[in-house]
Nucleic acid binder design. Structure first.
Lengths: 206, 206
DNA sequence: CGCTAATGTGAGAATTTGCTCACATCCAAC
DNA sequence: GTTGGATGTGAGCAAATTCTCACATTAGCG
């Protein structure tokens, strides 16, 4: 029995170029619709319509609606994760305060680009909460950030670094997401990064 | 023309006691289902079923599925808001640090009780984002919290209090919501309140 | 009791959803 | 050019969903 066949695995791997284009159109359409109107609005027929392909083509490559979403999440997690990982490694030797400011700024960028997918899908669809809960950029990068903090362990006054990291992670992401969600923000990117970084730095070192 | 008739307004106001009970059953059922299985699972038939009333009764009092949800949101906003407002007024003269710790603790309680409704509905259903975006407990209480901070203006080093409040609000709520969402938290209530309060206090006063 | 309005019922109409399948078209290799 | 597999199509099925409506039941009141 092939019980191990991932239920989200693509049905067919595109081999010709036009097939690749089809798959890409579907993913892009799905992402656009979900970002703009939410998961509910992303019916398979609508996705196929926006993608400019027939519903049949859609089901040729994706076994179910959820498989499309799973592909989106996976893509976002991988890309955002990899990008942040590289960024962090480059900054590994930066001074604590400057490093934190850069990291927060970078996180804002990444959340702006991929955040909607994470937020919408991870929270709207309970089913995906577990996926992104385990794979969310932050957890994926736990080790890297942990390493950065350990690098500056002597400057950090907080006793329990693990607990602090949990709080910090959600403090930062919470503020960034709220800022991005806000239609009429009372501050701009630079100010947000400044304030959030300040809070993090003070929390860790004072 | 009655164009101003709220699209979420109840169709009929219950007058007899059994009708009140019916309405209440519907709201309770809807709330339970949404909290446990999310918005998608709360089909009108299912809600009526769980409530123990017929689908016809449901539509006698609520013009649409969204009207039920709107009623839930409104109720949560009002109750949570009023509760927090009273709490804050009582604490208005508390010392800054102690006051903040109590406020964060209170916010954790309130979010635990009503947060699922806010989070699920506000984020899952784009349509309700605007409602709760304007009515969310925090904004509703903006003035009260602002007054508390002004009470301690001399201890607070942050220059722009409005900006700081925006950041703080989402910092705190972000961390609390993440904590409540987390299935296997690495800290407990007291520790969370302690850490979050610490961050707030340091951010404001150092 | 008898009457009326309030309340409750649930089959099913109308629509939407995810998804299939029989068929048409395209491409690459010989 | 022919052939076979890869790709694309869209009518339409089955199930689910929102909501209506004609009717049944109940409560309150003279």
């Amino acid at each position: 029995m092939k019980a191990n066949q991932n239920q989200f695995a693509p049905r067919k791997v595109p081999q010709q170029e036009r097939a690749l284009f089809t798959v890409d159109s579907i993913l892009t359409a799905a992402r656009t619709i979900i970002e703009q109107k939410g998961y509910e609005a992303a019916s398979t027929n609508h996705v196929a319509d926006v993608a400019g392909v027939s519903i049949g083509s859609l089901y040729q490559y994706f076994p179910s609606k959820e498989a499309i979403v799973a592909a989106l999440v996976e893509d976002a997690v991988l890309k955002a994760g990899e990008r942040t990982r590289k960024f962090l490694i480059e900054r590994m030797d930066a001074p604590l305060a400057a490093g934190i400011r850069e990291i927060v700024g970078h996180l804002l960028e990444v959340r702006r680009e991929y955040g909607l997918i994470f937020r919408r899908l991870a929270r709207e669809v309970p089913r995906f909460r577990s996926i992104s809960g385990q794979l969310t950029t932050e957890k994926y990068l736990y080790n890297t950030i942990h390493a950065f903090y350990r690098q500056h362990r002597d400057e950090i006054l907080v006793e329990d670094l693990e607990t602090a990291m949990f709080v910090l992670e959600h403090l930062v992401v919470g503020a960034i997401d709220a800022y991005l969600d806000n239609d009429a923000p009372i501050l701009n990117d630079a100010e947000l990064v400044q304030q959030v970084s300040d809070a993090v730095i003070k929390y860790l070192t004072k």
